[in-house]
């Protein structure tokens, strides 16, 4: 097991977690995590089920309140901000299972994404979404629940982007999707990143996430066990162990 490297980097810092602890009753899902994400950076968090990845994202999105530690968005503490205002700080989450509003139409889902905005260019942005995803345009008046899994994922990402976030967080964006759809999803994420939006990605599919990310963290049992560039992590002996939870895999080979 490796001691996590200091991830903080100077200047343009968007998100800063300090000693983050999240407890659900007696269970501690996250047990002291430090993380900093700079503007325009893509960070991947990988790890086995139950490592605390989703809890971490939920905390940054304001859905779960941390038991200890601090979260700062662009230097501002998140603690005093109501959940409905977190999105106004520029943080958007595409949760696992996508959480689209199934009985509302595609159009209504997109309008909802723009809830925090008061500017006049919402319609133009929605038209751009339809240009990028023609299938969403064709189904604009259909209940979103009737879309296929891949279409729902596109809608969920488009909806989150309509809030014009500085940080887009995605929880398992490839889960349950066919490989060609996953390709498409990651193409979109690459595009979003090129617009200067920071990404925080939680993935089971480490290969996909590593191909996109500038930095990666391996999470296990509520802590980061490894951190570095994706290439560094893939080379690391402890990676497979932490990821699959089988310590002997590489130990046997050594």
């Amino acid at each position: 097991m490796t001691v996590p490297r200091d991830l903080t980097s100077p200047g343009g810092r968007l998100v800063e977690l300090g000693g983050l602890v999240i407890r659900y009753g007696a269970i501690a899902a996250v047990q002291g995590v430090d993380l900093a994400i700079d503007a325009g950076e893509a960070v991947a968090i990988v790890g086995p089920n139950g490592a605390g990845k989703t809890s971490l994202l939920s905390a940054i999105a304001g859905i779960v309140r941390p038991s200890a530690g601090s979260i700062r968005i662009a230097g501002r503490p998140l603690a005093g901000i109501a959940l409905s205002d977190v999105v106004r700080e520029g943080v958007a989450l595409v949760p696992e299972g996508r959480n689209i509003f199934g009985s509302l139409t595609v159009m209504e889902n997109l309008r909802l994404g723009a809830t925090p905005r008061r500017d006049a260019s919402v319609s133009a942005d929605i038209d751009r979404v339809f240009a990028d995803f023609p299938i969403l345009g064709e189904r604009r008046d259909q209940p979103a629940g009737q879309l296929s899994g891949g279409e729902q994922q596109m809608l969920a990402i488009a909806r989150a982007m309509l809030s014009r976030p500085r940080l887009l967080m995605l929880d398992e964006p490839s889960l349950g999707l066919a490989p060609n759809i996953v390709d498409k999803v990651y193409d979109i994420l690459r595009q979003i990143r090129s617009q200067g939006v920071s990404l925080l990605l939680v993935e089971q599919n480490a290969a996909r996430a590593f191909a996109l990310a500038d930095r990666a963290c391996v999470m296990s049992r509520g802590v980061f066990t490894l951190a570095g560039t994706p290439a560094e992590i893939e080379r690391h002996d402890a990676f497979d162990a932490a990821y699959f939870g089988v310590a002997m895999a590489k130990a046997g080979a050594a």
Partner: peptide, 24 residues
């Protein structure tokens, strides 16, 4: 209206709606 739409979103999924910025 916008208010009606935001309210229906909270009917569908309260947490997701509030996290989208809806003052339910």
């Amino acid at each position: 209206s916008r208010s009606g739409l935001l309210l229906r979103a909270s009917r569908e999924d309260e947490v997701a709606a509030v996290a989208s910025g809806v003052h339910m």
